[in-house]
């Protein structure tokens, strides 16, 4: 038997909204430790790695390891049937289930709804993600990052991110012209709107804006976002999910031919 409950459906709704436009389907790997999802987008340019730890759930029971093939658009539709304040319970039989149930209970217990979703057989490659010491690790307000990606995407398809000890610069150019946004490191590191940079060595990397704009769908999950960069390897964009997990987006760089 697999059963996991969250006190507030809101967090799971935001998680689905953060991945449903980038991924069509993915395997939810359920173990004693929690739920993990790892999948590449259809074009194999980006990879999403989601982790929800079991100790972050109000109730969590996983008698046997379980892999659930989920159509994310379907799950997002079901999640949208819940109110943010509803308690959500996910239930599945653990001997190779072909369906999963979602139960939403209103906070005043007057409304209980349940939805059953068919599961899929998804044959997906699992990738080994090496631990990396990054040249630059930037923490910044997630709303700021979302705004930069959206604004600059109007000027060009590619975003050049340069990071040095002075700060981080986002640049683009296209038919319309060019645009640059520079953020200096802030002095007061522990405020939500702080920009902090840990730099081993300067980096300059180029990425496709459209994927970054998919990643920023995770903005409602966390007020801060962490960008980790080293030359010629994928960018890591990380949003924490409360104190129960995180979403990591990896994006392959564009390199000059």
């Amino acid at each position: 038997m697999f059963e996991a409950s969250l006190a507030q459906s809101a967090i799971l709704k935001k998680v689905l909204d953060a991945i449903k436009d980038l991924l069509n389907e993915a395997n939810f790997e359920c173990t004693d430790d929690g739920i993990k999802v790892q999948a590449m987008d259809n074009s194999h340019v980006s990879l999403v790695s989601l982790e929800l730890r079991s100790d972050g759930f109000e109730k969590y029971r996983c008698d046997r390891n379980l892999s659930m093939g989920v159509n994310l658009a379907s799950m997002a539709k079901i999640m949208r049937c819940s109110s943010n304040s509803d308690k959500v319970t996910i239930k599945a039989q653990d001997d190779n289930p072909d369906k999963v149930s979602f139960i939403f209970e209103s906070s005043n217990q007057e409304r209980i709804s349940d939805y059953e979703m068919k599961l899929m057989d998804i044959d997906a490659d699992q990738l080994g993600i090496p631990d990396t010491e990054y040249s630059c690790v930037v923490k910044m307000p997630s709303a700021e990052f979302a705004r930069i990606c959206k604004d600059l995407n109007q000027f060009g398809e590619s975003l050049v991110i340069s990071c040095s000890k002075e700060g981080i610069k986002f640049s683009t150019s296209g038919d319309l012209g060019s645009a640059n946004v520079k953020l200096a490191q802030t002095t007061d590191a522990d405020k939500d709107d702080a920009v902090t940079i840990e730099m081993r060595s300067p980096v300059t990397l180029t990425f496709a804006c459209r994927y970054l704009n998919h990643f920023t769908k995770a903005t409602p999950l966390s007020s801060q976002v962490q960008l980790s960069m080293s030359d010629e390897i994928p960018l890591l964009v990380e949003y924490r999910i409360g104190d129960m997990g995180c979403i990591k987006y990896y994006l392959a760089p564009k390199i000059d031919d």
Partner: peptide, 14 residues
């Protein structure tokens, strides 16, 4: 012109 690389090039298939 910058060419888009694939994520699978960087992470090894398990």
């Amino acid at each position: 012109m910058a060419l888009q690389t694939s994520i699978a090039e960087y992470f090894n298939l398990r």
